[in-house]
Simulated assay, not measured.
Amino acid sequence: MSNSIFSSSELSMFRLAGLPDFQAGDDLAQSIIATLEANKQSLQQGDILVIAHKVVSKTEGACVELADITPSEEAIELAKQVNKDPRKVQVILSQSKRVVRAMKRPDQEEGVLIAEHKKGYICANAAVDESNADHPGQLILLPEDPDSSAQTLCARLEAHFGCDLGVVISDTFGRPWRLGQTNVAIGLANVPGVMHMAGEVDAFGRPLSVTAPAFGDELAAASGLLMEKSAKAPVIVFRGLSWPKTDSSSRDLIRAHNEDLFR
């Protein structure tokens, strides 16, 4: 694994097949180890695992039941604007620093809430989601500390396999001015979120001044090619990249408020 900007002429990736359905208290790291061994697979020096946050959230108990939620007056009023269950809106508010935009078009049955999550991510519904929940009425939240979750998982896997690894925890976000959703990095261990390439040169020898690939997000987005919601494939392994091991944080990928031209 390189200590400089990543370079690679070849990359392979595979999804880890055969993982169980996860519940609160399950040992995710041990399940990954056991499934790799059952598949006669192993992890190698420099491998990076991209893990869907929902399995992390489930094992950590970051889920709520709508039946247990009593909405506030604020949630009830906001729910009327967007035609959402006020209990779900209450959960969204509990996960948010602020609501950026609440909107419902006439052709929509249910509107959208764009919120700033407690961790700083700007996303729909403060990342509160129902897809791949265990049963109707369950909502899945982001892990309380996705970076810490990634670091704990990475340390366990490195200790077992005896090599340097990286872990990215991902979620699916929409994007301003672009249609569709893509996976992004919300938790990092060892993997740089952003590669600062100022001072390097391009293919024609011209110096780079502002180029900074979002390496963590690029890995997360690529994982979506194999991480189908219906495939029960929440762990994707990348192999063949050379990358600098860093003390990274998913906050490295969040633009500072004073740099937000559209705030």
Rank of each mutant, 00 (worst) to 15 (best):
231 A>P: 00
228 E>I: 04
170 S>T: 15
63 C>Q: 15
254 I>P: 09
192 P>T: 11
23 Q>N: 14
252 D>P: 02
207 P>R: 13
189 A>H: 01
248 S>N: 07
77 E>P: 01
221 A>H: 00
156 R>I: 08
193 G>S: 10
176 P>Q: 09
256 A>V: 02
204 F>G: 02
226 L>M: 11
164 D>P: 06
13 M>L: 14
236 I>V: 15
110 E>Q: 14
160 H>Q: 11
191 V>G: 05
193 G>H: 07
192 P>G: 11
57 S>W: 02
230 S>G: 01
239 R>F: 04
37 E>V: 03
127 A>S: 10
150 A>K: 05
18 G>M: 09
69 I>P: 00
74 E>F: 01
37 E>K: 12
161 F>Y: 15
10 E>D: 13
103 M>I: 14
70 T>F: 09
76 I>C: 11
22 F>E: 06
143 P>M: 03
14 F>M: 13
254 I>W: 13
39 N>M: 05
27 D>C: 09
214 A>G: 00
163 C>A: 15
66 L>S: 11
45 Q>V: 07
162 G>L: 08
236 I>Q: 02
51 I>F: 03
219 L>M: 05
152 T>C: 00
170 S>R: 13
111 G>L: 09
232 K>P: 01
185 A>Q: 11
183 N>L: 09
183 N>T: 01
208 L>Q: 04
148 S>V: 07
162 G>M: 06
217 D>H: 14
129 D>I: 12
28 L>C: 09
63 C>Y: 04
46 G>Q: 03
83 N>Y: 01
130 E>G: 14
167 V>H: 08
9 S>I: 11
87 R>L: 00
27 D>I: 10
197 M>P: 01
202 D>P: 00
227 M>D: 12
118 K>C: 06
27 D>V: 07
227 M>G: 04
186 I>M: 06
94 S>H: 07
34 A>G: 02
105 R>T: 01
108 Q>N: 10
152 T>M: 02
159 A>C: 01
127 A>K: 05
241 L>G: 05
222 A>Q: 01
234 P>C: 12
212 A>L: 01
240 G>S: 13
198 A>T: 06
205 G>R: 09
77 E>Q: 14
175 R>A: 15
214 A>P: 07
174 G>V: 06
39 N>Q: 15
246 T>M: 15
4 S>W: 05
29 A>I: 10
210 V>E: 15
114 I>W: 04
219 L>F: 02
